[in-house]
Design a protein around this nucleic acid. Structure first.
Lengths: 342, 342
DNA sequence: CATCCGACTGACAACGTTGTCTACCGGGGT
DNA sequence: ACCCCGGTAGACAACGTTGTCAGTCGGATG
């Protein structure tokens, strides 16, 4: 900027005014300055600008994994909102690691982002205290913050969705419905399990721990568990899968586990999955759909409201889910006599 | 930092030394400083640090759309590399809009990122000249930069992959293979079309413009084109689809267009798609697979080499593709007599 | 002619760091 | 007694902006 000023024969401040389109600069002078800028290939240094102004016009987004369809669609929605407000976006994946979540958040804060959208991996957010004191705004998405951390939160109705999905299977005659969920330490997984249990209870069915599998969606693990489940003396006639990854991996396992002659990709078993996924329509898989884009949009809206100065008490929004019947969830159990024939 | 210095009764510089783990600070003094930092909830301001030091330890990534599986997996690979080198990552989606690409890149540059990885939407990268002069390093991924812009580039062997995929169909007896590609202005789309033509030529088959459809993967558009193609007097017996989105949409259209009784999700037509996609295995769709993660990793490696000071002449890397047969591409054409029976 | 006004321009400090250079202090070698 | 040295600490400038305030100048006003 100094060089530009020298080249144009004006003061530093005048260049600043031109660069920022501030009024009060003679058209001819501005012209000269612009020419100098062009000639020298000058670009404003936003680091200095940020330092001086105190606002960065950027926000940070911490998710679990960009490569996952759910989060990438959430990201896209946040990015759209950021673009719309003229903000730049930092992104980072926590890999379900709370230390990494913290490191990312603190790195973003050190860059003085104005706000954060966090899909928390950990359950302790005490480390955010100094940041909040410093005026940083944060919105939690998909999962709530740890105890003692007051912040806006946007969730899906996980329990409600799982309840509806399980009830759907029960309504189609199933009495032994297995639940395949992610690690119970994950908020959404625990909530969905809760919904599943509520649906069983509401139907007067017993909760059978033998029908419940919780853990990361590792193909080998899932295969072992499914094999065991289906070989049991009283195998489940229906599956409720707790997230998109698990649903997909389950479909894969079922495809190799059951005879190709079996009808449909679920090999005769009824199945409802939490999370919609690409091509579920073609495969005829009934799902409880969340709307990740809406989740991201809502979180971003909330954040930009805060950034605009709104300081109402924090809110906790729960977005509804939607049951999408596509065939796999409407399949009745096999006739009684066949029950153990597998 | 000033406050911390005052609170600890030391000079500014001493706090700086403690914060940066510089040697030459008495353990007791450091202790006092750390206590003050803790007490005041102090966090270093990276904007100021960046301004002073000149290096930002951050890179910018411009892709086409984070929500697309191909790019989100590329993103993830870049993010991993950035993490590994201790860099932060700015991300932005260009939406296939060259103006937006430029704005994003320039915004990142204004933030003084050290390097850029760009999936270009436009074909003119003259705007990068001043940035290059200022020392910013850039690597182009998936598509090359516009003419006159010298920079490292990592591509897939688009033409080779399309040639192999088309040849595969021809080898299985098809003589009328339709090509459904993205807009011809997109480098990868054009290259794939070229590969398709080369395969036809190599097999001595004529190039029939009536069998080629180029344009954005809009469901309605695709449906119209497919309907037209299949209703022709000499309809294609096989399809080559030019990217993941198009493959998926084509499958959808075929599912509704053909009788459910028809074998397989492609309704009797043979199909090979460019790009692998989730569940292609279950659907039995033969694809020419790219490896987006490897693309991202390679681009990042190249960039970090440059950032480390390597200034060899720029390189252009082409990654091989891999044909993955899964059934849809190995289906022979219907017997001659049936040709127009559809 | 003195005065004032508005349009334009510039000088200067400040944002929060870090690099450089200098200062102090106590101990060991000459 | 002198010097030097390593270990420690601080003063100060600089990074590139922008906000504040003060200045200049030509013309309109009283």
């Amino acid at each position: 900027m100094n060089d530009v000023a020298a080249a144009a024969g004006v003061a530093l401040k005048t260049v600043s005014r031109v660069v920022n389109n501030e009024p009060g600069v003679n058209a001819a002078t501005a012209e000269r300055v612009l020419a100098a800028i062009e000639r020298l290939g000058y670009r404003r240094n936003d680091s200095a600008r940020i330092l001086r102004r105190g606002r960065t016009a950027s926000i940070g987004l911490v998710i679990e994994d960009v490569a996952d369809a759910f989060y990438s669609s959430l990201s896209r929605a946040v990015e759209d909102a950021a673009l719309h407000h003229g903000y730049l976006l930092f992104t980072g994946s926590s890999r379900e690691d709370s230390a990494r979540e913290r490191d990312l958040v603190l790195a973003f804060c050190a860059r003085r982002v104005d706000g954060l959208i966090i899909v928390p991996a950990g359950t302790d957010h005490g480390y955010l205290k100094p940041e909040f004191d410093a005026g940083i705004k944060a919105v939690f998405a998909d999962r709530p913050p740890g105890a003692g951390c007051e912040a806006d939160t946007v969730l899906c109705d996980n329990a409600g969705g799982a309840r509806a999905g399980t009830a759907h299977l029960i309504a189609h005659g199933h009495r032994r419905v297995a639940f395949l969920g992610d690690s119970p330490g994950i908020f959404t997984a625990a909530e969905r399990l809760r919904g599943y249990r509520e649906a069983l209870a509401a139907a007067g069915l017993p909760y059978d721990e033998g029908l419940v599998v919780m853990g990361p969606p590792d193909p080998a693990r899932l295969r072992a568990h499914l094999t065991r489940l289906l070989a049991a003396s009283e195998p489940p006639t229906a599956l409720f899968t707790g997230n998109g990854r698990i649903t997909v991996e389950t479909l894969r396992v079922l495809a190799t586990l059951t005879d190709a002659a079996d009808a449909g990709p679920t090999g005769g078993l009824a199945l409802v999955g939490f999370d919609d996924f690409e091509l579920a329509d073609l495969l005829g898989v009934t799902v409880v759909a969340q709307d990740p884009a809406r989740l991201g949009r809502t979180a971003a809206d909330l954040l930009f409201m805060r950034l605009a100065g709104n300081d109402e008490p924090t809110s906790r929004i729960e977005l509804a889910t939607r049951l999408v019947p596509r065939g796999s969830g409407e399949r009745p159990p096999p006739p009684r006599g066949n029950r153990t024939a597998r």
